[in-house]
Amino acid sequence: MAQKPMTKTQLVAALAEAMDSDKASANRFLDSLSEIVSKEVADGGAVTLPNLGKFACRERPERMVRNPATGEQIKKEADRTVKFTIAKALKDVING
């Protein structure tokens, strides 16, 4: 049975406890980290979070896609997306 995902409030509380800090500082840290990663990836760069993984921007070429409701083929313009690659250290923790 799957657990519910950790909420931001729970994550901030866990960070504050782990850092021996208050929740406001932990919240500012989390918001700053999110902002830095978002800005770097949006600029086409990549960010590695040690022992977790790597966020990177990926270019997708123009391609033909199908509308599942009508079956119609549509040309989708080239775009960019975020790719997350999990770190080996995290894989090892998950797989025990």
Rank of each mutant, 00 (worst) to 15 (best):
M1Q: 13
M1W: 04
Q3Y: 12
Q3C: 11
Q3P: 12
K4P: 09
K4W: 07
K4S: 15
P5N: 12
P5K: 12
M6P: 04
M6G: 05
T7K: 14
K8A: 07
K8D: 01
K8Q: 11
Q10I: 08
Q10W: 08
Q10D: 11
V12E: 11
V12M: 11
A13N: 05
A13S: 08
A14M: 06
A14I: 03
A16C: 01
E17P: 01
A18N: 09
D22F: 01
D22K: 01
D22E: 04
K23A: 11
A24E: 14
A24C: 10
S25F: 09
S25N: 08
S25W: 06
S25R: 06
R28E: 05
R28K: 08
F29A: 11
F29I: 11
D31T: 13
D31S: 15
E35L: 13
I36Y: 02
V37H: 00
S38L: 12
K39R: 10
K39D: 13
K39H: 10
K39V: 10
E40C: 13
E40A: 09
E40K: 13
V41S: 00
V41Y: 00
A42E: 07
G44Y: 02
G44C: 09
G45P: 01
A46P: 06
A46N: 11
V47I: 13
L49C: 05
L49T: 14
L49M: 08
P50L: 11
N51R: 12
G53W: 02
K54I: 00
A56D: 06
R58L: 03
R58C: 00
R58E: 00
E59Y: 11
R60I: 04
P61E: 15
P61I: 14
E62A: 15
E62Y: 13
E62T: 14
V65T: 14
V65H: 12
V65C: 10
V65F: 15
V65I: 13
P68G: 07
A69H: 13
T70C: 10
E72W: 14
Q73H: 13
E77P: 02
R80V: 06
R80L: 03
R80K: 13
T81E: 02
T81C: 08
V82M: 05
K83C: 09
K83L: 05
K83T: 09
K83D: 07
F84S: 08
F84T: 02
T85L: 05
I86E: 00
A87V: 00
A87E: 03
K88N: 14
K88H: 05
K88C: 06
K88A: 09
A89E: 02
K91M: 06
D92C: 04
V93H: 12
I94T: 07
N95F: 00
N95E: 01
G96T: 03
